Amino acid sequence: MRILHTMLRVGDLERSVNFYTQVLGMRELSRQDYPAGEFTLVFLGYGEKSQATVLELTYNWGVAEYELGTAFGHIAIEVPDVYAACEKMRAAGGTIIREAGPMNAGSTIIAFLVDPDGYQIELIGQKP
């Protein structure tokens, strides 16, 4: 068994695709419209769906925003250098909500940014 994907509902599909490709450096892997259900699915990731866990963005036609609630936490992405990643992502238009630095109860370097729909993404430094 393996985790295939995580699905996020988004209010503006192109804005979200641009964020995940331009700010986070993912590739758009596939896109499919479902006219009978009035939704579009876009899969993005750093590797192919057959080899890696990917992100599924679901756009329900005509729905511009969602209430996120309090149950979902964040998506975590490992990066070689959290400080450099923050600068690169900020320069690409990303919004950093927790600057790079050691986590509260440990020494792992982390940071957080937020996507256009308010979902949080944690950046975690690679272990030496």
Rank of each mutant, 00 (worst) to 15 (best):
G37N: 13
L41P: 01
K88P: 00
W61D: 12
M7T: 15
P80V: 05
N18G: 13
V23F: 01
C86Q: 07
N18H: 14
Y34T: 11
Y59N: 03
T58A: 14
A76V: 14
H5G: 10
Y66N: 09
R2E: 02
I124L: 14
A36V: 12
Q126E: 06
V114G: 02
S107M: 10
I97K: 02
S50K: 12
W61K: 14
L44T: 06
G69E: 09
K49Q: 14
R98C: 02
E56D: 09
E65T: 06
M103R: 14
Y119C: 07
W61I: 07
L8V: 09
Y20Q: 03
R90H: 12
S16V: 11
E122S: 07
L55Q: 02
D115R: 05
Y20W: 13
E99K: 04
L41S: 08
Q51K: 15
T40Y: 08
T108M: 08
R90S: 14
M1A: 12
R90E: 15
K127Q: 13
L24T: 07
I96N: 01
L113G: 09
I3W: 01
G94R: 04
L13M: 03
A111Y: 03
A84R: 14
G73H: 15
Q126C: 04
L24M: 15
A92E: 06
A71R: 08
R15G: 00
T58Y: 05
E67G: 07
G45L: 03
L24W: 04
D81C: 09
A71N: 12
T70G: 13
R2F: 02
Y20M: 05
L123G: 08
Y59M: 03
G73T: 15
Q120D: 05
A36C: 06
Y34L: 10
V82E: 00
L8E: 05
Q32S: 13
I121K: 02
R31G: 09
D33S: 15
G93C: 10
F112I: 06
V42T: 04
T108S: 11
F43D: 00
E65L: 01
C86R: 01
A100W: 05
N18W: 02
V63D: 08
A64V: 04
R31D: 10
L24E: 07
L113H: 15
L13Y: 06
I75N: 03
E14R: 13
L55C: 01
K127N: 11
G73F: 08
S107P: 00
I97P: 02
I96W: 00
G94K: 03
G47H: 11
G62T: 05
S16T: 10
V10K: 10
P128Y: 01
A71T: 08
G93H: 14
K88G: 05
H5A: 12
T40E: 07
D115Q: 08
L8H: 12
E67C: 04
H74E: 12
H74K: 12
A64W: 00
N104S: 08
K49Y: 00
T53V: 13
R9D: 09
Y34D: 13
A105W: 02
S107G: 07
M7G: 13
E48F: 02
N60H: 14
Y20F: 14
A76S: 15
H5C: 12
M103A: 06
Q120I: 12
W61F: 07
S16L: 08
S30N: 12
T6R: 04
E65R: 11
A105D: 14
P116K: 05
V23Y: 01
G94Y: 05
S30F: 11
A52C: 08
F43P: 00
L13R: 03
Y20S: 05
R9K: 15
E48W: 04
Y46G: 01
S30T: 12
